[in-house]
């Protein structure tokens, strides 16, 4: 079933590469929810910010769809683009903050404090805890592994790291998250 779906994705991607908007529309329809889900959790910010990242990621995918390597799942390629788009926007936001005036910085700090308070309030869910406790790379590795069921080789593509490094990332992420999971799920040793 998954193999058929992947072949179907490749066929749609080929048509989209030829300029077929309808084919790309179908791909966007198929993968909007998983990409939005991932980016919203990754961003941990307002829904509008995350949706902007998703919109930009799909736009980049359309622009570069001819570069898609059909040996790998289309969703893996899409997640790679979404992650990089988010990283770019996060870096740009950081640079903007540095350039802002003292007053604006003060406002940003105040806003940040409010956001942190909200985040603390919301951090009752495991993935929010994961986002707060883990690095972006560890978070993405875990998400691809457990939510998207990606094999390690494809996670390596998303993270742009060797397979062995991905295994270490997953190992460390699981170890760091384990106490929180234990608390939330009420595990016993």
């Amino acid at each position: 079933m998954a193999v058929d779906s992947q072949r179907d994705d490749v066929m749609l991607a080929r048509r989209a590469a030829g300029g077929c908007v309808a084919s790309f529309s179908e791909l966007a329809r198929r993968y909007q929810v998983p990409v939005v889900h991932y980016v919203r959790q990754l961003a941990g910010r307002g829904r509008a910010d995350a949706d902007d990242v998703v919109q930009d990621a799909f736009f980049r995918a359309w622009r570069h769809i001819a570069d898609y390597d059909s040996r790998f799942a289309f969703s893996t390629w899409l997640f790679t683009i979404a992650r990089r788009t988010w990283l770019n926007q996060a870096r740009a936001a950081r640079r903007r903050r540095v350039r802002e005036s003292a007053v604006a910085v003060a406002e940003a700090i105040a806003g940040g404090a409010a956001a942190a308070a909200i985040a603390t309030e919301q951090a009752t869910r495991l993935w929010q805890v994961a986002r707060a406790e883990l690095s972006e790379r560890e978070f993405t590795g875990l998400w691809m592994r457990y939510v998207e069921d990606k094999p390690v080789a494809e996670i390596a593509l998303v993270l742009n790291k060797p397979v062995a490094t991905v295994k270490v990332i997953l190992f460390r992420a699981r170890r760091r998250l384990e106490p929180f999971v234990r608390d939330l799920a009420g595990w016993s040793e």
Partner: peptide
């Protein structure tokens, strides 16, 4: 969101390349 994504597409040509 789907509509917003699609609205940007036709105005932008697909970059040249070959699907492997």
């Amino acid at each position: 969101l789907h509509g917003r994504i699609l609205r940007r597409l036709p105005a932008t040509p697909v970059a040249a390349g070959v699907i492997q």
